[in-house]
Design a protein around this nucleic acid. Structure first.
Lengths: 157, 157
DNA sequence: GCACGGTTACTCGGATAGCGCCTGTCCGAGTCCCGCGGG
DNA sequence: CCCGCGGGACTCGGACAGGCGCTATCCGAGTAACCGTGC
């Protein structure tokens, strides 16, 4: 899986603590990441309607929705794309007894089993929101929310 | 996900029908796939202990275990490798309040959530065996087992 | 003191190289079958 | 007719190029804040 997914998730979590737009460079500084590339990932999140971007001074990125309305699946799909990891190439079309005009995405038993497993994965991701993550972090590391909000609001580097 | 996984799964299914060794070239011909590359995938399955290879004429690949003892997860792991799709890079180490010597694979809430989802996926794959697939195919496409066994036993192309 | 316009600096946004992994290909080592010759 | 042996062909096994997607980077368009000026 693309490493940018991890960055995007942590960025969304950080943005859930901030109370005003945070520039991509500031978020990148937080994890010592290359700023231009993180910017690219945040753009993808903005295109997906997860983030809202405001240009100009004092601008940056903000969550476009409530943290409770952003699931982990939303972020993963925004970065990785909507196509599933296991894509049935329908190789049964070339098999000796295969029907060239059959729909093997639906008819192939193997494809069906893999899709079922992947559905379980997606269901799990869709059941967890950024708000859930934030709650657990607050529970596990008290005070981190306030610390991070202040840090993100500090003078830009 | 690597496309070779699909080939490996279909190959295992075919081998569960065969009653004697099948050469890689014959399996490749079944799906009109490039033989040398399919051979490479089958080698990986053999290294993982899923297939058993016998050289020489009338040689080829055979299932090393009962179809009921081969799960989809076994095949996926043999091809894709054991490392999970989402690998926590522990970027929290670089964060302003991060502990450089903390274990963020276990401590990071995001990493934990992603691992949970991936575990659900693996659990689903581990619950399905090649024998299950074969049963469903026999149920859905009657006679296909016999047809395929005969075809695989035919003169090599 | 207030309103307004120009300047400035800061932000996102998309277009552009570099690298690693998967895909695809090749040839060599090993092994079993088959035919031939001898007993 | 039966047994042993050598040639041959077929199999796997690992080493070698090519292509695509993720990683990393840059510079330009747009916009809001800020400051100076005039009223």
């Amino acid at each position: 899986m693309a490493e940018g997914v991890e960055w995007a998730l942590h960025s969304c979590l950080n943005l859930s603590w901030a109370d005003r737009p945070v520039p991509a460079a500031r978020l990148a500084k937080y994890f010592e990441l290359p700023a231009p590339y993180l910017n690219k990932q945040l753009q993808a999140l903005a295109r997906a309607g997860i983030l809202s971007s405001t240009p100009g001074p004092k601008g940056g990125f903000t969550l476009a929705r409530t943290p409770a309305e952003i699931t982990l699946l939303d972020v993963v799909v925004a970065i990785e794309g909507p196509s599933p990891a296991f894509r049935c190439a329908e190789i049964l079309h070339a098999s000796p007894f295969g029907d060239p005009k059959a729909d093997y995405v639906a008819g192939c038993v193997i494809s069906h089993a893999m899709s079922t497993a992947e559905l379980a994965w997606r269901r799990e991701l869709a059941a967890t929101t950024i708000a859930d993550i934030a709650t657990r972090v607050a529970d596990q590391y008290p005070g981190s929310a306030e610390r991070n909000r202040e840090w993100l609001a500090e003078a830009r580097a």
